[in-house]
């Protein structure tokens, strides 16, 4: 890989620091959407209603992209690949560079963090995100008669997660890798480590922290963990030959790896119509065994 500058991730820091990453196995993903619902519940994602959805103002932090292949003229006979898409927590995040007020920066544990309090809402980050995973609070979605959903009544507010801020209008938000769970897990590890003298750099055990989407995924397609720990499950998946990152050529160096979907089909059954749907993701996801 050609790069103009040195990475901030240094080998010598690997023992000390965590690098949170996620692997998603597209073989296991059924596109059920449970992860999206779990994410909405965990992260107080506002419900915005039909009108806003029609104008592409959904607030979901997570979505499931669908890519079709096969005989596209015959809708009965296409095969589909689901790709859960959320913030990729890129190491070279295009969104961070363009934020004028440092509202979105990288943390030492590899997260692309978002500070709502600092955000002024220029939306430059969302424009510059190749994955289009950033969501802007176009209106105030709580205590607002125009958005008469759960955040507008006392009973509905009981659903809100007290660990997560309800965002003000005019700020950007996006998948945080459930940072509230990560911080909680790290603290617990440190508290426990005090008794066993591992010091301030104690890391949570692999699998001790689960993101909401991972926790909910019925097929276990989502695996989350520390890339700096070579023995972690996610590290092993990152080394898998099926692993790829989305839009690799933009060189954003995402922290999310997808594992290519593999289908057991005879070669002559596969008709990929690249002329109509020749996007990069598809090329990655449609590696058929020959």
């Amino acid at each position: 890989m050609i790069t103009l500058w040195d990475s901030h991730y240094k080998e010598e820091n690997a023992n000390r620091l965590i690098r949170w990453v996620m692997a998603i196995d597209l073989n296991k993903c059924t596109g059920c959407g449970a992860c999206v619902v779990a994410c909405n519940a965990e992260n107080n994602v506002p419900v915005v209603g039909k009108k806003e959805i029609m104008t592409h103002r959904d607030m979901h932090w997570m979505r499931i992209d669908r890519y079709y292949s096969g005989d596209l003229d015959n809708a009965e006979n296409v095969s589909v690949v689901f790709q859960p898409m959320m913030c990729q927590h890129c190491a070279n995040a295009p969104c961070e560079t363009v934020c004028p007020v440092l509202a979105t920066v990288h943390t030492s544990d590899g997260l692309n963090s978002m500070s709502y309090n600092r955000c002024v809402g220029t939306r430059y980050c969302a424009n510059n995100c190749p994955y289009k995973v950033r969501r802007f609070n176009w209106f105030k979605y709580h205590n607002n008669e125009n958005f008469d959903f759960h955040q507008n009544n006392p009973l509905g507010k009981l659903v809100l997660n007290p660990d997560v801020t309800v965002r003000f209008r005019g700020v950007m938000e996006k998948c945080s890798f459930c940072v509230q769970r990560l911080q909680d897990g790290k603290l617990r590890a440190k508290v426990n480590a005090k008794q066993t003298d591992a010091g301030a750099f104690a890391k949570p055990k692999d699998g001790a922290i689960k993101t909401a989407c991972q926790q909910t995924c019925p097929t276990g397609a989502i695996v989350f963990g520390d890339l700096n720990d070579p023995e972690s499950e996610v590290s092993k998946l990152f080394r898998d030959e099926r692993a790829f990152t989305a839009l690799e050529e933009v060189k954003t160096l995402p922290s999310v790896s997808y594992l290519t979907r593999i289908r057991n089909q005879k070669a002559d059954e596969v008709k990929v119509n690249h002329a109509e749907h020749g996007h990069k993701e598809e090329e990655h996801t449609e590696k058929h065994p020959s």
Binding site: T97, C99, P100, V101, L102, V120, G121, Y124, F136, G170
Partner: peptide, 29 residues
Amino acid sequence: HAGRTWDLIWFAPIPNTRGTLWANFNSPL
């Protein structure tokens, strides 16, 4: 065009009470 026009003062490179969080000189904006 900013979502929170009233906070645009954060563009200004002035020392502040938010520690050393200043402006981002990498940003074309």
